[in-house]
Nucleic acid binder design. Structure first.
Length: 478
DNA sequence: TGAAATGTTGGGGCG
DNA sequence: ACGCCCCAACATTTC
């Protein structure tokens, strides 16, 4: 029986508590080598810029938390499988533990690595840290996978809560010699030349930051959540998405905290069902590995998406001339995050008003969101575009003026993110092109100069989108 | 987790 | 008093 150290390979589980891989390593009584690998050739996708910013801070927090327990985080970069194998050989490791990820490329890579480690008699084991239910454990009556959220969630709810989160391990015995490690400064994950991350200051990446976000959300009371979550100027949402993506907190812990908080009733139910959508999206991705690149509904393969770099650029940088759309895109650019209601509006605008491929929007979100996640990004873009599993019907085309007036009635959100419009009266804030010249002048707005005119006319764009949909309609909306 | 077009209803003004 | 019309409010259908 071997007593070599155990490598704990951290990926998107950057926490000490409720971490099955770390807990198993600590329980083994063997020395623990915590490892993070910056993947040079990622199995799935290279990290976006905002994700790199977050990872930098989260790893600093993890490193400090490990150090407080006697652990020293090893940082290496390159081909992940090769690095894990090399480190195992170099340290005489008896095992490598990690927690599972569910995107198709990573599943394949991890499977190959597990086999390679076993072939050299190194124990390889994976745990579950990211989901309430493993994607393959929720099955229809006939053993298949779900394609509609409501029956999925009904079935999934029945098996939730069977696994209790474990506390963080007390001490992590170090190996006899510390393996070589890069430093985070070597990796230069924080942006430089220029440093565009000034607006990210409100975030606190790391396990402690995740818990203070959860505590703020619960202590604020959930009563207003069902309504407040739709008003982007309100701090009514949990803002947990980046913490969940990086695994600084896990859904089991949130589930437990909701129960401890005696959070029941419709508001808590609503919030739990949002966790349900997150689970459902992982379920769909697991069973449909092409989700990040191909429409879930094959009829959309023939959809006549346009190519229009100027329109894509205007959308990306918040210069469409529709205030609620531009405010959202600027919030994203400045803070690395966008309110959920506004994500739906800007995604509808891209895919319907501009007729641009959802993949172009998905790619922009991937680069700019601190919570960018393959399952969530792909599934949610497809949902809005109408081509996803249990998707919104294609003809559900948001009117950006009405959405703005309904969910940002007092204009606080638009005034914050599009300050050049701030002095317009509420009546014209979401439709500046309808304001009389004198009103524009009094507000210091000059359309086409200080703020763009609409790059498309809503009514005409709506008609064009419906005509495009008509071309693929047979079987596309069932 | 829409919006717009179309259809229906009912209150009130008015001859 | 009654019928007619207008139209806002609401409901249904369509995209």
């Amino acid at each position: 029986m071997t007593t070599g150290p155990v490598i704990v390979w951290f990926r998107q589980d950057l926490r000490l508590a409720d971490n099955p891989a770390l807990a198993a390593a600590a329980r083994s009584g063997r020395p623990v080598i915590p490892l993070y690998v910056l993947e040079a050739n990622p199995a799935s996708r290279p990290l976006g810029g905002a994700a790199r910013w977050w990872l930098d801070k989260s790893l600093r927090a993890l490193s400090a938390d490990l150090a407080a327990r006697g652990g020293r985080l090893v940082l290496r970069r390159g081909d992940a499988a090769r690095i894990v194998e090399t480190l195992a050989a170099e340290t005489g490791a008896s095992g490598v533990y990690w927690n599972r990820l569910y995107d198709p490329a990573t599943i394949e890579r991890d499977g190959d690595l597990k086999a390679a480690l076993k072939s050299v008699s190194v124990e390889a084991a994976s745990g579950s840290a990211a989901l309430l239910n493993e994607p393959w454990t929720v099955k229809t009556g006939t053993g298949g996978d779900y394609k509609v959220f409501t029956p999925y969630w009904r079935a999934a709810l029945g098996q939730v809560g069977l696994v209790e989160p474990e506390p963080a391990p007390g001490a992590l015995p170090p190996p006899a010699a510390h393996p070589d490690s890069d430093t985070l400064d070597d990796w230069a994950l924080h942006p430089h030349g220029p440093d565009w991350s000034g607006g990210f200051a409100a975030w606190t990446p790391g396990e402690a930051g995740a818990w203070s976000a959860l505590r703020r959300f619960l202590d604020g009371g959930l009563a207003d959540y069902p309504e407040g979550r739709d008003r982007p100027a309100e701090p009514a949402t949990s803002r947990l998405s980046p913490h969940l993506h990086w695994g600084e907190i896990g859904p089991r812990q949130i589930w437990r905290a909701l129960a401890d908080h005696r959070a029941d009733g419709v508001a808590a139910e609503k919030f739990r069902s949002e966790l349900g959508w997150r689970e459902f999206n992982h379920h769909v991705l697991y069973h449909r590995p092409t989700l990040p690149t191909d429409a879930f509904k094959p009829a959309f393969d023939a959809f006549p998406w346009r190519t229009d770099p100027a329109a894509l650029a205007a959308w990306s940088r918040g210069r469409t001339g529709y205030p609620i759309v531009d405010a959202g895109m600027r919030e994203l650019w400045v803070t690395g995050w966008m309110h959920n209601r506004v994500r739906m509006i800007v995604a509808s605008f891209l895919t319907k008003h501009l007729l641009l491929d959802w993949r172009a929007g998905e790619a922009w979100f991937w680069d700019t969101l601190v919570d960018a996640d393959i399952a969530q990004n792909a599934a949610n873009w497809q949902w809005v575009a109408g081509c996803g599993a249990d998707a919104a019907p294609y003809f559900r085309i948001f009117n950006p003026v009405l959405q703005g007036e309904k969910f940002d009635a007092d204009g606080r959100y638009v005034r914050r993110w599009a300050p050049e419009l701030a002095r317009l009266p509420d009546r014209f804030l979401h439709r500046p092109w309808e304001a009389p010249a004198a009103v524009l002048a009094a507000a210091g707005v000059e359309l086409g100069r200080t703020y763009p005119r609409p790059i498309v006319d809503h009514a005409a764009a709506r008609r064009r989108a419906l005509e495009a949909f008509e071309q693929i309609r047979t079987g596309a909306d069932e």
